[in-house]
Design a protein around this nucleic acid. Structure first.
Length: 451
DNA sequence: CTATATGATTAGGA
DNA sequence: TCCTAATCATATAG
């Protein structure tokens, strides 16, 4: 506080301006001695803060009781009168700091300094958690909100602490000034000014608090909202669902808009995340099929089990309900599979497949066979329906074969998986969403029978 | 700490 | 606009 130095200056000014009468020092007349006394007094004043409290108190008491005190006081009053003008002019300004305004606005916009909704971090977290499962990104959102309310809480407690400290300090200073007013003249205006100075100081501290709070919020924002900076892996379940779809549509892993939407919903991720995932998956799968073989087998087997059960059930159903053409019309193609039987059967199948955990409707199972065929190079998926074998047998067979080959094919550049042509693209990928015949490509590219 | 996995971004093509 | 391919930046496993 520069006020202190000012007061000191004032006092020093008094002593230097030739009023030794004001001080409780015996005066013996000689000029040299006089100057030395002044020096002593000055020194005493300057070092008064270094003295012990008792000592200082005793000195003060001595000063107060001095016989010349009244005279000193009047002199001080006089000086004060003269210097008062300079004090007055210097202030009365209250320019709203633009930066402070900005900080305030931001804190308000971020909901840090605004009215608290809910009451406390736990309440907010609980509220968001309750809403939680509903929308897509509310899980990250609740995390974000929890952290934000944490910042908010810290901000408010700190602010309160500063406020309290400020008030305490103000009253302390006012008490001090009141006490001093017995020794020297202090106008109410001066007290007010002092209080203002204190408030200014504290508000600058507050500004620092606001600044760092803003920074914290910005960091939080960038961490949570800039997903690239803070990449978060999808949940295991989500990856599972996506992989299941991918490997069961390996011939044409281009989910339609609707399929993407459904996947997004199931995985609790956004549509573009689904697209990203498939984009990444396709390119990475293609780049290193060997690496993904194990995974492919895993998911193929997984889906195959479901498919087997479903197909078996379907066959059983057909046999019991309509013995004619149990499975001949079963086309292993996207958008093209159809039981030539009545609609109710189709519905039944669809229900069965979509109902089973994570399995995506019948078209998928077809691609599993094709995936398998790619492994051993001999099984042609298109033949499956005509082999005369039951579906279940085919599946078991292909899985058994593929497992045996999985290692030998690793990294083999000659190996070309079904659906993947030599030019580095999935067959018929030109019109991904409306693809109708992914299969014939697989036949043609497996000319590398030398494998 | 290093290597790998993985989600996101970007450039460029059709 | 959607795709591929390359690349970035982070997460995670070893």
């Amino acid at each position: 506080m520069d006020e202190q130095s000012h007061l000191m200056q004032t006092l020093v000014g008094v002593t230097l301006s030739g009023h030794p009468v004001a001080l409780p020092v015996p005066h013996d007349g000689t000029d040299a001695r006089n100057k030395q006394d002044i020096g002593d007094i000055l020194h005493q004043i300057m070092t008064i803060t270094d003295q012990s409290l008792d000592e200082a108190q005793a000195k003060k008491h001595g000063l107060n009781c001095h016989r010349m005190k009244a005279a000193l006081f009047s002199v001080l009053c006089e000086i004060k009168e003269k210097t008062g003008l300079s004090i007055r002019g210097s202030h009365d300004e209250d320019p709203p700091d633009p930066q402070l305004m900005r900080l305030d606005n931001m804190l308000l916009a971020e909901g840090v300094s605004g009215p608290e909704k809910g009451g406390g971090a736990s309440a907010v977290a609980a509220a968001t958690a309750a809403v939680g499962v509903g929308s897509d990104n509310s899980i990250e959102h609740s995390d974000y909100r929890a952290k934000l309310s944490q910042i908010r809480q810290i901000y408010h407690t700190e602010l309160e602490k500063y406020e309290q400290a400020c008030n305490e300090f103000t009253t302390h200073v006012m008490n001090l000034l009141r006490e001093q007013s017995r020794t020297r003249p202090i106008s109410p205006k001066e007290i007010e000014r002092m209080v203002n100075i204190i408030h200014n100081k504290f508000s600058s501290i507050q500004m620092q608090l606001k600044q760092s709070t803003c920074e914290a919020v910005m960091i939080l924002r960038s961490r949570f909202l800039d997903a690239r900076r803070k990449r978060r892996n999808f949940s295991k379940q989500a990856t599972e669902i996506l992989n299941e779809y991918f490997y069961s549509h390996l011939s044409n892993p281009y989910p339609s808009e609707e399929a993407k939407e459904e996947l997004a919903k199931k995985c609790a991720i956004t549509l573009s995340q689904v697209s990203n995932w498939f984009g990444n998956k396709r390119i990475r799968y293609k780049k290193n099929i060997g690496k993904f073989q194990e995974e492919a087998n895993l998911y193929a087997a997984k889906t195959a089990v479901t498919a087997t059960q479903a197909v078996a059930a379907a066959i059983h159903n057909s046999q019991t309900n309509s013995p004619a053409t149990p499975s001949s019309g079963f086309q292993m193609k996207d958008e093209d599979f159809q039981l030539d039987a009545a609609e109710d059967k189709t519905n039944l199948l669809n229900n069965m497949f979509t109902g089973s955990s994570g399995s995506y409707s019948l078209p998928g199972s077809g691609d599993i066979f094709m995936s398998m065929s790619g492994l051993n190079g001999s099984y042609q998926p298109t033949q499956l329906p005509n082999t005369g074998q039951t579906q279940g047998d085919s599946i078991c067979h292909t899985i058994g074969q593929s497992l045996g080959y999985s290692d030998g094919l690793r990294g083999n550049p000659l190996y070309s998986p079904h659906g993947l042509n030599g030019n580095g693209g999935w067959h018929d990928a030109v019109t991904p969403s409306s693809m109708t015949s992914p299969i014939e490509g697989a036949n043609s590219i497996h000319s590398d029978t030398s494998n």
